[in-house]
Simulated scan of single mutants.
Amino acid sequence: MDTSVFLDIGTGLKWLGLLSLPLFLVPLIALSAPRLVDGFALKLSWLIDKVTGIALGAAIASSLILVFSMLAIVILRYTFSLSFSWLNEITTYSFAAMFMLGAAAALRDGAHVRVDILRPRFGETGRNWVELTGIYLFLFPICVRILMTSEAGLARAWLLLEGSRESDGLPIFFLFKTLVPVFAALLMAQGLSEAIKAALRITGALPPETPQQLAAEGGGHGA
């Protein structure tokens, strides 16, 4: 396999990442200069939410594959005493895809477990400031770290088109590894969308969260 192809793809993705960096300033601009970028910010948030919805659809499909593959494993093993590595790997890959592709949608819908005990006690503005600060201080750095640490292993996996170590396994281990940076990129993008919403709620460009939204978030809180 020609290594230059993967080097070109990697370089292109890096440039794409660098070119997208100014977008992460949009929530801060919306705070410091209200009404200046509100229209663009809302469209960007809407687009990100749409992409997250597509990823959620893929996560749901993965969950169905997981259910049927687990059912097949149980029937084959306990009825016919048969076991296949490729079928076991399907369950692993589908579970990973369900989790990694659905994480951004969970953030969008307020379904992530929250460990902060102060946020629910704040008013509307305080909650939005906590959300905005947490995204920039914790979510973005963690996602960037995941992207940086997964780069070398992913490049090698694609270069070799790495497959299963089992003789009857699936030859798509390189795609499995690709889920890691995809997970980080989706989560970063949705974090940007949530930061935009929080900033626009602070400035009054968006209405406050509904009781249903607050209840959904409250259900995910932990001490």
Rank of each mutant, 00 (worst) to 15 (best):
D2S: 15
S4R: 13
L7Y: 12
D8V: 12
D8H: 15
I9T: 14
I9W: 08
G10D: 06
T11D: 10
T11S: 12
T11P: 04
L13T: 15
W15F: 08
L16F: 13
L16N: 09
L19G: 12
F24E: 05
V26E: 00
L28E: 04
L28F: 07
L28G: 10
I29R: 00
A30H: 02
L31T: 06
P34V: 02
L36H: 06
D38H: 00
G39Y: 02
F40C: 04
L42N: 04
L47I: 06
L47G: 11
V51F: 04
I54T: 12
A55M: 06
A61F: 08
A61Y: 04
A61R: 06
V67K: 01
V67I: 13
F68C: 07
A72D: 15
I73T: 08
Y78L: 04
T79R: 10
F84G: 05
N88W: 09
E89Q: 14
T92I: 14
T92S: 09
S94G: 06
S94V: 08
F95L: 09
F95T: 06
F99I: 14
F99N: 10
M100S: 13
A104V: 11
L107P: 04
D109N: 13
G110D: 03
G110R: 00
V113P: 07
V115Y: 02
I117G: 14
I117N: 09
L118A: 11
R121P: 08
G123Y: 03
E124G: 07
T125V: 15
T125L: 09
G126D: 03
G126V: 04
G126A: 06
R127S: 05
N128F: 01
W129R: 12
G134D: 11
Y136A: 05
F138W: 05
L139R: 01
L139P: 02
P141V: 14
I142F: 09
V144H: 08
I146L: 08
L147Q: 04
L147P: 13
M148A: 15
S150D: 06
A152W: 08
A155E: 05
E162Q: 06
E162R: 06
G163L: 03
D168Y: 03
L170I: 15
L170G: 10
P171A: 01
F174D: 10
T178H: 11
P181W: 02
P181K: 04
A185N: 02
L186I: 07
Q190L: 08
S193I: 03
E194A: 03
A195H: 00
A198D: 00
I202L: 00
T203R: 03
G204Y: 00
G204E: 01
T210S: 14
Q212C: 09
Q212V: 15
G220E: 09
G220S: 13
G222N: 07
